[in-house]
């Protein structure tokens, strides 16, 4: 095996779904789903933020073209903005980024102040993490992108109704552990975009696909949709961001961080969570240089499921597609007039 296998999250998710279905237990079920995501999503991103950020600087083409198509002076949301890589894709629009991870938002903010040099910015955030979190990056006079960031939960967005022209939500909704929560996340996005005036505000949602026949992850149609996907972080100290990270356990040359081998029968590595701010020791340890293993929860979307969730959220699907292991859809609150007759 060249990399850590993903493991099934199905039992945990089944429990969450059962709790949600139990009459009169809605609030408790939400608390449980949230606790699960705190462990398997939020806590992970807080701990891996600098490393994660360093691996995230290439925009997805479908996202980039959606942003480029926005009218100058439009106001847009990027919900789950991560390190903010999409906040300056189109400098003619005002972007408001939000993320559940304060560590990632701090990184995004530090990048906003830097001049146009995405790769250099990434390098800087990974080597000078202390500066990234210190909040002293305000005085860059030139090239400052017209955008802003804040910390917020996608299910409790602090934006007023119909406030903005468009929204994007990239690689976020698949981290929510029940279908009701995924649909609610889309409903929240739709709530924030303008409606009742042409053109209706559009929402781009981008999620990981179950159908990944061309990737080495081994997932495909008919497979399990709820998974824990390991993120391997080599260092066990706070200085991890300055080190070269070993990719995979046994074969450092092949494994990509996200490239995991499905291993449905194998014993999954026990979920390991960071204690406090720093990463905790990983499982399966065999020595002092052990990588730290964080288990991120994913719901892999099957074909058509994202569109179903948009409809359940009260939206309409404007267009949708598939791009390198991901499903995406552009949704709105109402169909554009020209498409009313198909």
């Amino acid at each position: 095996m060249t990399s850590l296998p993903s493991s099934s999250a199905a039992p945990a998710v089944a429990k969450l779904a059962a709790a949600a279905a139990a009459p009169g237990h809605d609030a408790q079920a939400e608390v449980e789903a949230e606790a699960y995501e705190r462990t398997h999503v939020h806590g992970v991103y807080e701990a891996i933020a600098p490393h994660f950020s360093a691996t995230r600087h290439k925009p997805w083409p479908a996202v980039a073209s959606f942003l480029q198509a926005q009218h100058p002076g439009s106001v847009g949301l990027d919900v789950g903005c991560g390190n903010g890589k999409y906040l300056r894709e189109n400098p003619a629009v005002f972007m408001l980024g939000s993320d559940r991870s304060a560590a990632l938002v701090a990184l995004a903010r530090s990048r906003l102040g830097r001049s146009e040099e995405p790769d250099a910015a990434v390098a800087a955030t990974t080597t000078t993490n202390a500066a990234a979190g210190s909040g002293v990056e305000f005085s860059h006079e030139s090239g400052a992108a017209i955008s802003d960031v804040l910390v917020a939960d996608g299910l409790s967005l602090p934006f007023r109704d119909r406030a903005v022209d468009f929204a994007i939500c990239v690689a976020v909704v698949h981290h929510l552990s029940t279908r009701a929560r995924r649909q609610e996340a889309i409903r929240q996005l739709l709530r924030c975009v303008k409606t009742g005036e042409a053109p209706s505000g559009q929402v781009l949602v981008y999620v990981w696909a179950l159908e990944q026949g061309n990737s080495r992850r081994g997932w495909d149609e008919g497979g399990e949709q709820d998974l824990l996907v390991p993120w391997v972080l080599k260092s066990t100290s706070q200085t991890q961001q300055s080190r070269t990270l070993r990719r995979g356990l046994d074969n450092p040359t092949t494994a990509k961080q996200d490239a995991v081998v499905a291993n449905k029968s194998g014993e999954p590595p026990a979920p390991t969570m960071p204690a406090g701010d720093g990463p905790a020791a990983g499982t399966g340890g065999v020595g002092h240089t052990d990588p730290v293993v964080f288990q991120r929860y994913y719901h892999l979307y099957r074909k058509g499921e994202l569109e179903e969730d948009v409809l359940a959220a009260g939206g309409v699907v404007i267009t949708s597609g598939y791009e390198r292991d991901n499903w995406w859809t552009v949704a709105a609150n109402e169909a554009p007039p020209s498409q009313s007759e198909k």
Binding site: G135, L150, L157
Partner: peptide, 18 residues
């Protein structure tokens, strides 16, 4: 009250307000 620190507003809610 939502705190703003180092230019970043934090809108995460305590569990009783979610």
């Amino acid at each position: 009250e939502y705190a703003v620190r180092e230019g970043i507003a934090n809108f995460l809610l305590p569990s009783h307000l979610v």
